[in-house]
Amino acid sequence: MSTPLRTPMPSADQPRLNPDARLSVEQASYVYAPNPSQAPLFTLEALSFQAKPGEIVAILGPNASGKSTLLKLISGALEPLSGRVFLSGFATHALPPKIRAQRIALVQQESRLLFPSRAWEFVLQGRHAYNRRMHFESEEDVNIARNALAQVGATHLSDRWMDQISGGEKQRVILARALAQQPLLLLLDEPTLHLDIGAQVDLLDSLRHLAAVNRYTVIVVTHELNLVGEYADQVVLLQKGKCLRVGSPASVYQRELLEQVFQAPLTVEMTVAGRPRVTLLGKT
């Protein structure tokens, strides 16, 4: 904690708060402390940004920068210490579990199942939020689930057992379950961690397509610089609990900034399409 932090961006570059934005994070902060009398273990300082339907937002930063904490604030798992996180006008933390599950879907890296189930059963779990307490899935639920599998290109996995498919295939099924929730907000926590490169690109391509077609707001937590540069519409750059910059990839990917955040020498180039590309240099 000894390197001096860059001061946050001047307010002129911060997006003005649009009251009609789907997701609105307004000066939200959080503090982890084992008990009130001790010093906090980790602080996520107040930050703000907004996201629209059809947009992919990347929360970017090295480990322990607060990405997961921010994701938990957005998903409503944590209540912000100050400020608020609004989804279409409702504070995410205050939503009852079923309603929240209808609006926010979370895709995690792994899914540990105690007793194995088939892929279609797994995807059907996404419909739980729409049904009454004691129910059986309806024809509509089944169609939605089938559709979700098709959208991620996993229809052929439908009858396979979850513990017998590859990591990438499992990731797709998990995504399908999230889609079956028909959410407004799609959250992904380090989705590319266990995937090989081809699968990573496939996933991001799917996300871009799904965001456009189904008008999701997609929030991806990651530290993959080039994937973010290529696919994100907006980037929230975090370091050690502080938001350093919010903006388009082109505006956030400044060489000195990135080098300081990721502690590695690199170069930034622009592609023809206006997307930044980062090349890591060796420490010679």
């Binding site: 049904n131 009454r132 004691m134 129910h135 059986f136 899935e137 309806s138 024809e139 509509e140």
Partner: peptide, 10 residues
Amino acid sequence: NSGPRKFSLL
């Protein structure tokens, strides 16, 4: 099951 009918006498 058809449509939104739900059974509650499970």
